[in-house]
Nucleic acid binder design. Structure first.
Length: 105
DNA sequence: GTGTTGACAATCA
DNA sequence: CTGATTGCCAACA
């Protein structure tokens, strides 16, 4: 086997897979991803994102109130404007219109 | 085994 | 909007 791809855990792999499946212009909250997986909780998803999130569209994963991750709100805003994500506030505090941008698998 | 912390969520003041 | 509080789950010292 020699398939030593990402030594990521099974749970982390699922989280990354879901995030990678989110289409542009759409977003999911940490709790939504956790619920989608049916295991763990929003905190586990957030922890996975902080560890392996660098390989996926982390900006498509935000808080339940539509605010992007900390330290990336500026970068995330640029992505939203580029992807055409429905924003409620186009300037800090950046807020995404979860009512429309919320994606379900 | 216990206590603290965390890219959370929801509610109340 | 800020702060406090509770619930949830896992990692870490």
């Amino acid at each position: 086997m020699a398939t030593a791809e990402r030594p990521v855990d099974d749970y982390s792999a699922r989280v990354l897979d879901v995030v990678d499946a989110i289409p542009p212009g759409q977003v999911m909250s940490y709790g939504d991803v956790a619920e989608y997986l049916g295991s763990g909780g929003p905190r586990q998803v957030g922890r996975v994102m902080s560890t392996y999130g660098g390989g996926v569209a982390w900006w498509r994963v935000l808080h339940a109130d539509g605010t992007p991750a900390p330290g990336h709100d500026s970068a995330a805003l640029a992505r939203y404007l580029q992807e055409g994500t429905p924003l409620r506030s186009a300037r800090p505090p950046v807020r995404v219109d979860m009512r429309r941008a919320r994606w379900k698998g």
